[in-house]
Structures are given as structure tokens and as C-alpha cells.
Design a protein around this nucleic acid. Structure first.
Length: 188
DNA sequence: CCCTGATTCGC
DNA sequence: GCGAATCAGG
């Protein structure tokens, strides 16, 4: 076995596959996962650009380039300065520390044929049900209570989530995620 | 917060 | 040429 380990070697085969998948609309992370574990999505994107592919779907638009993106000095290198006085409380979540499963590419994972299944989601009133004894008044809120409003402020049926909020954010986990998504997606 | 691609720059 | 780091948008 003299096999050679062509780790990050962009062979014609891989390049072709890359082009094919890219043109088919697969995301960089998916392509990376398909190409091999030693390939990251950054590598894919980098190669794509080098190949002058970037534009895979440009129907009719001059696309004024994303933007100049001023790069002052963003190289890596994280000043090793030994000024680490106290040990930051940053436990390593080994539970979620995997090499690179890359299994979250479910975005287009369902691209298999016959995927039409009439997915109908109607979470209209998909809100958390808060027991009356847990509902909070505006005056009952504190730094650790979720401040997600529920109901119509104009009616007496209005109250706050009141569940324990997270350290980073005024809302509980459930509502914080929702808030972020809504804001980001709705913007504009 | 998650994800996406785009860009830059050190190797 | 390659890819990590970073940025910016959704």
C-alpha cells in the first residue's frame, strides 16, 4: 500500500464535481461534505471563486458586487499575550464538540426525487402556554424573567412569558430564538 | 440564533 | 493555488 494521501488536492474530478454541484444549486457546505471530510465549505467557496464560478444563478441583474468589504487587518493570529489573569468560565461543551459531522446540511438534503409532500405548517398560534400562576405583570418582571409579551396589550389577556430568561437576552430560549429570527428575516 | 456566500490575506 | 478567518446579508 503506497497509497498517497492527497488531502487537499483539487483533482480534475473533484473540480468537476464541485462545478456540477455548485451549478446544481447545492450550498458550499453541502458540496464540501460531499467532496470529503477534509474539505471545508470555505475551501469550496475559495475554489469556486478561483474558478470564476461565483455566479451560478444570475438571471438578469448586473449585481453591483456585494460590496468592497474594507479589510483593515483581519488576519488570524490571536495575540497569545499571556495576560490571561483569570480563567474565563468557558467550559468545553464536549457534547457538541464534534470533528466535522456536517450533517446539518438539511437545507437541500431533501432534494431527493419525489420530495413533494405538501408540507403544510400552520403554527398560527404556536405560542407557549403559560399557566396563569406563572403569568407576569409588567411590574413583576425582573432581570431574569422572559419579557416576551403575550396577548394583546389592550386586553386583560396580556401578560409576559415570565420564564427564566437567558444570560444573553431578555427572553427565554424559546422566545429569544424566535425574536432573532423574526427580526433578521423580516428586516426590509 | 442559525445559516448562506464573498472577500481578503497569510501560507 | 489553497484555505482559514472574517465580513455581511438573510
Amino acid at each position: 500500500m503506497v497509497s498517497g494521501a492527497q488531502a487537499a488536492g483539487w483533482t480534475d474530478e473533484r473540480v468537476e464535481l464541485l462545478k456540477k454541484l455548485w451549478m446544481e444549486g447545492l450550498s458550499a457546505s453541502q458540496i464540501a461534505g460531499e467532496l470529503g471530510e477534509g474539505v471545508t465549505r470555505n475551501a469550496v467557496i475559495g475554489k469556486v471563486h478561483r474558478l470564476k464560478l461565483s455566479a451560478r444563478a444570475k438571471p438578469t441583474n448586473t449585481a453591483p458586487r456585494a460590496r468592497p468589504a474594507p479589510r483593515p487587518a483581519a488576519r488570524r493570529v490571536v495575540s497569545p499575550s499571556a495576560g490571561m489573569s483569570h480563567v474565563s468560565a468557558k467550559p468545553r461543551p464536549a457534547a457538541s464538540s464534534m470533528p466535522r459531522p456536517q450533517v446539518m446540511g438539511a437545507t437541500a438534503l431533501a432534494m431527493a426525487p419525489a420530495m413533494e409532500t405538501e408540507l403544510y405548517v400552520a403554527p398560527a398560534t404556536q405560542e407557549l402556554f403559560i399557566p396563569e400562576d406563572k403569568r407576569l405583570n409588567l411590574l413583576q418582571l425582573n432581570e431574569h424573567t422572559c419579557k416576551w409579551p403575550i396577548g394583546d396589550p389592550l386586553t386583560k389577556d396580556f401578560y409576559f412569558c415570565g420564564q427564566h430568561s437567558q444570560e444573553s437576552g431578555p427572553y427565554c430560549e424559546f422566545h429569544s430564538r424566535r425574536a432573532y429570527h423574526q427580526m433578521d428575516k423580516k428586516r426590509r
